[in-house]
Design a protein around this nucleic acid. Sequence first.
DNA 1: ATTTGTCGAGCAAAAGATAAAGGATAACAA
DNA 2: TTGTTATCCTTTATCTTTTGCTCGACAAAT
Lengths: 210, 210
Amino acid sequence: MKQNPSKQKVMKAASSLFFLKGFHGTSVRDIAQKANMNVSSINYYFKSKQGLLEYTVTAYYEAYLKALEKTLNETETLAPIERLHALISTIIHYKQSNYQLTCFIQRELSLDSVFVREMAVTYLAKENYIIRETFYNVLEGRVKIDFKNYLLIQLKGMLVTPYILHNDWKDQVIGEYSHQLFVKRYVRVIQQWLDFIILNGMQTEKMLAQ
Amino acid sequence: MKQNPSKQKVMKAASSLFFLKGFHGTSVRDIAQKANMNVSSINYYFKSKQGLLEYTVTAYYEAYLKALEKTLNETETLAPIERLHALISTIIHYKQSNYQLTCFIQRELSLDSVFVREMAVTYLAKENYIIRETFYNVLEGRVKIDFKNYLLIQLKGMLVTPYILHNDWKDQVIGEYSHQLFVKRYVRVIQQWLDFIILNGMQTEKMLAQ
DNA sequence: ATTTGTCGAGCAAAAGATAAAGGATAACAA
DNA sequence: TTGTTATCCTTTATCTTTTGCTCGACAAAT
C-alpha cells in the first residue's frame, strides 16, 4: 500500500483538521493550506471533499480489520480468554497509533448520513462480529444471553472511551502520559474488568434479574 | 423557567437536527423548516446560529447541574456508596430524558472551539468535580491515588457510553428497549461494577503496579 | 401607539467544485 | 542529440451553490 506522498500529505492534514473541527467544520481550503497544497490538487486526487473522507476512512478500517483478523489467526490455539486479551490489546494499539483519526471517526460515526450507514454495513458489522464472538466465547455458559448484551456494550464502551473523553483523559493522565504506558495500563484495566466479569458472572446476573 | 413557545419549538427542532447532522452540518434554513418558522425569527430570538447553540447547551447544563446538586443535598446523610449510587441514577435519568441533546453535546464537546472551552470551564469542571469527589469518597483508602484516575475515567466512560454508541445500543437492546427499563438496568450494571471496584480494589492495584 | 413578533427578499461571504492552461517527466522516433 | 507525444501533476482563475444574517415591511399584542 505504498502511497503518493502528496496524497499522504493531504490525508494527514485532513485527519488533523477533521479531528479538531469535524468534517463539516473543515473547509477544503483549510486542508489545502495546512498541507501546503492547492485546492484543485485535492479535488484532483480525491475527486471531492467527500471522496477524501471516504478514502481516508476506508483506509483506516481496512487496516484495522486486517489487524484484528491477523490477531485472531495468530491466537487460534489459545484459550478464549487469552484470545480476547490479545484482541483487546490489538484494538487499543491500533486506535492509539491512529489517534486523531480514531477520535474523529468515532465522533462522526454517531451522525446520520448515507456514508455512515455504508461504513456500518461494510466495516462496523464485521468489527462487531469479531468482538462479539470472541467475547461470547469467553462468557460461554457463565452468563444469561440477555445479560450478555449489556456486558458487550460495556466492553465496547471501554474500547472507545479514551477516544471520546480525550479531553478528560489528557487532564487526568498528565505527567505520566505517553502512548506506550497508556496502552499498557489501559489494556490491563480492561482485562481486570474482564476477569471480574468471568468470576462474578452468576452473582451479577442474579442482581440484575430483579 | 417558563419559555416562549416559539423559542421552544425552534430549540426542539434544532436539537433534533443537531443530533442527526451535527452543528455545522445543519443550516439555519433546515431548522426553520423543521420548526415551521421563518429564518429571521430564529435570528430574532437567538441573535445568531451560534447564539441558538449557546442558549440551548447552556439551558441543558444549568438544569443538569441543578439536578446533580439537588441529589447531593438530598443524600447528605447517606453513606458514600449510597450517595454515589443516587448520583449515577440522577445522571443517567437526566441524560436519558434529554436524549438527543445529550448525544449531540457529547459529540460536539470533543471538538476544538472557543465555545467548547468555555463550556468546559463553566460546566464540565463543576460536573467533573462533583463526580470525582463523590467517587473518591467511596474509594477512600481502598485504592492508590494514581490508580484512582483510571477508575474515574472508567466510570465517566460508562456514564457516556450509551450516548455515543447509540447505534450499537439500539441494535443490542432492541425489543426490550424502553427508556425506563434501560435506565433501571444500566444503572444497575454500573453499580455492580462499582461494588466490584470497592471489594477488589487492593487486588486490582497490585496487578497494575507491575 | 408602542412594543413585540413574523415574514419575504436579498446581500455578502464562504465553500465546494471545475475549466483551462501550463509544467514536469518519461518513452520513443528521427 | 533533438524533437514529439503522452501522462501525470499543479496552478490560476472562475463558476455555482449554500449559508448566515440583515433589512424593511407588515401584523399582533399590550
